[in-house]
């Protein structure tokens, strides 16, 4: 089932999502204002977002299948009838550890595990668990740079790093870099931003924010078709800042509660009656030349 949402309906999406409606279509920007401008700019395609694998996490009350969840999700991805063009991993591939050797072991495990995906085109982001204790030194050895851009079928992807700095900032340097990159594109170019932490203040007291994220949003504002996909909060979440939609993905180790829904942020315990509940990944179909994105939430195991 697929539903299209206009901007008024956007806000109600959380309700739809929890009701289990699959395949919700979001406009990427000022659709309706300059609708015609978007036509014919980009080819339609599908990519897949996996997030917050937290490989190395141990906590049987939270996930008794900590060692098996990732493989099950990979098997599910491999079994999808339509394989995505590429897969993005939006950070926290590993759970943090103080031991640099152990960190590398965990990163190596994830690298080998995702090597079993049929789709070989993969893009990686770091999370604070991967990168904040060593400024991404180990992460880079296995997965390369933490900020970069790439283009796919007419859509410009920008990967931002708000985790190498343990205070959770992008830094002036990166904001300059972002501005310089954006300046090369016209205001109607379809743009996707990938990041680990939310760029907006979702719940700063829960560490669900980027210290200087507002500077990035400000730089993106003049662009009409911008969509942000991120991780970090281990749940589906959809929010607009101005005309820019931000979509958080579920994780693959433990779900976290809705922002400020409980006094203290803590993983949601395993529900034996509904194993893997709250975990999963999503497919994202870029439609109408990057004007719209159809998001379909997928469970860990094939239903």
């Amino acid at each position: 089932m697929t539903r299209h949402l206009d901007r008024r309906e956007f806000i109600q999406l959380a309700g739809l999502a929890t009701a289990g409606v699959a395949g919700v279509v979001f406009s990427s920007g000022l659709r309706g204002v300059s609708f015609a401008a978007g036509k014919g700019r980009a080819e339609d395609f599908m990519f897949l977002q996996m997030s917050d694998l937290h490989w190395g996490f141990a906590g049987p009350a939270v996930n008794p299948d900590a060692d098996g969840t990732l493989d099950k999700a990979i098997a599910h991805v491999n079994a999808l009838p339509h394989q995505p063009d590429f897969i993005v991993f939006t950070g926290d591939l590993t759970h943090t550890t103080d031991d640099p050797q152990e960190r590398r072991k965990r990163l190596a495990h994830v690298r080998d595990a995702v090597g079993k995906l049929k789709v070989k085109k993969q893009r990686y982001l770091a999370g604070e668990h991967d990168a904040s204790l060593d400024r991404a030194e180990a992460f880079k050895e296995f997965f390369g740079e933490t900020r970069y851009t790439f283009d796919h079928k007419g859509v410009h992807f920008i990967v931002l790093d708000n985790v190498s700095d343990p205070t959770g900032k992008l830094g002036d340097d990166q904001i300059q870099w972002l501005r310089a990159d954006l300046a090369k594109h016209d205001k109607e170019a379809p743009i996707v931003v990938l990041t680990h932490r939310p760029l907006f203040d979702l719940a700063p007291d829960w560490d669900w924010a980027t210290g200087d994220g507002s500077a990035a949003i400000e730089a993106l504002m003049p662009y009409e078709y911008v969509t942000v996909f991120y991780g970090h909060i281990h749940q589906e979440h959809h929010q607009l800042t101005g005309h820019i939609p931000h979509h958080a993905a579920k994780g693959l180790m433990f779900p976290l509660p809705a922002p400020h829904s409980v006094p203290k942020k803590a993983p949601i315990p395993w529900d034996a009656a509904n194993p893997y509940r709250g975990l999963g990944f999503r497919t994202i179909e870029s439609q109408s030349g990057g004007d719209e994105y159809a998001l379909t939430e997928q469970s860990v195991e094939k239903a």
Binding site: T97, D98, L133, P166, T167, G168
Partner: peptide, 14 residues
């Protein structure tokens, strides 16, 4: 009034 660490410092930072 709660105060907390906002510089990621490891498993237990939260």
């Amino acid at each position: 009034f709660e105060f907390r660490c906002d510089v990621f410092c490891g498993d237990g930072h939260e």
